[in-house]
């Protein structure tokens, strides 16, 4: 059996290990919840993580182009990008797969029967991680953009008018500051 076959055979165990390791990046009280509920709508974070990790695993096994895994990566990274973790922590999840595989296939990987294949797989995981980092940056930039875009959206007509009459009307929307404030 080649490494792929081994991985396919042990898929469930490896995924479980990987998932658990990813959950360790959350505080205990949180990860408990993420583990318990399986429903897509009752526990969307847990759901997205499990589904996403599985899709990534399958993709790696089949050796597909990393780009085609973007949607699955995205579904995970997009969540982790707003979970208040340091980037190093948020982005550790691809690497944890190496750990999970080495842990689960420990006996088989002893010796260097699979070392060639394993090296290839590990660089694929590295590529995945780099790609994930791109997505992470896009997500973070989106958050900052949202903050700016939203304030524009909130005052869209004001801005439009300001442009039309070429002068700012002196409004300070949302802050309620007012020259006319008096008791």
């Amino acid at each position: 059996m080649d490494l792929k076959g081994l991985l396919a055979a042990k898929k469930d165990a490896i995924l479980r290990k990987w998932f658990d390791a990813v959950l360790e990046s959350y505080p205990a009280d949180t990860s408990n919840f993420l583990k318990t509920k399986k429903n897509r709508f009752a526990n969307p974070v847990g759901y997205s993580l499990t589904k996403g990790l599985e899709a990534l695993f399958d993709g790696l096994l089949q050796g597909v182009e990393i780009e085609t895994l973007s949607p699955s990566l995205d579904s995970i990274v997009r969540i982790r990008a707003v979970q208040g973790m340091a980037p190093s922590k948020a982005m550790i999840f691809p690497f944890l797969l190496k750990n999970a595989i080495r842990g689960e296939l420990e006996p088989e990987l002893r010796g260097d029967r699979f070392s060639g294949e394993m090296t290839a797989l590990e660089s694929a995981i590295d590529a995945l991680a780099l790609h994930a980092f791109n997505i992470y940056m896009q997500c973070r930039e989106k958050i900052y953009a949202l903050q700016a875009e939203e304030s524009q959206r909130l005052t869209y007509r004001l801005l439009q008018k300001a442009k039309m009459v070429c002068e700012v009307q002196g409004e300070d929307p949302g802050t309620g500051s007012s020259k006319d404030t008096k008791k």
Partner: peptide, 28 residues
């Protein structure tokens, strides 16, 4: 919260729009 509250109290709406601003925006 406090900003819109103060604006609404004095000017009648959360954004602190003064009467002429409201009408001219509806004009748009």
């Amino acid at each position: 919260i406090a900003g819109p509250v103060a604006a609404c109290y004095m000017k009648g709406n959360h954004l602190g729009l003064e009467p002429h601003t409201i009408t001219s925006s509806v004009e748009l």
